[in-house]
């Protein structure tokens, strides 16, 4: 981003607007789906899928992760792996113990 020329910045701005519209649409979709009161598992899967999609858009375009340096990717990959380890806490707690 450091060498962003005026032209490329203008191009970015157009992308931001597109992403913004998409995010709004996804917000409405996820609210709409929630009114259908799907089963618990289906509802969780759909809601988390849409949330992940929105989060990816924010991270990729607003936070410029789509064109970031390797070092940042490496740090975030490590974080992502350890985030998954955090999610193992409930698994390790309930698996093999019974609810």
């Amino acid at each position: 981003m450091e060498t962003a020329s005026a032209e490329s910045v203008r191009k970015h701005v157009r992308v931001y607007v597109t992403v913004f519209v998409t995010l709004m649409a996804l917000t409405l979709i996820t609210v709409a789906i929630s009114t259908l009161h799907l089963g618990t598992v289906a509802a969780i899967l759909v809601a988390l899928f849409i949330a992940s999609l929105k989060a990816s858009l924010v991270a990729a375009y607003f936070m410029h992760l789509i064109s970031e340096k390797k070092l940042i990717y490496a740090a975030l990959t490590l974080t992502a792996v350890l985030f998954l380890v955090l999610m193992v806490i409930p698994v390790s707690h309930f698996a093999d113990r019974g609810l």
């Binding site: 340096k69 940042i72 740090a75 975030l76 985030f83």
Partner: peptide, 29 residues
Amino acid sequence: GVYNAKLGIWLFLASEVMLFGALFSSYVL
């Protein structure tokens, strides 16, 4: 390929991910 503060903020955000991740994990549990 980055300036100091860029790396610094991403590291800070990484720790924030772990903070909210732990709360999210607690929620699931």
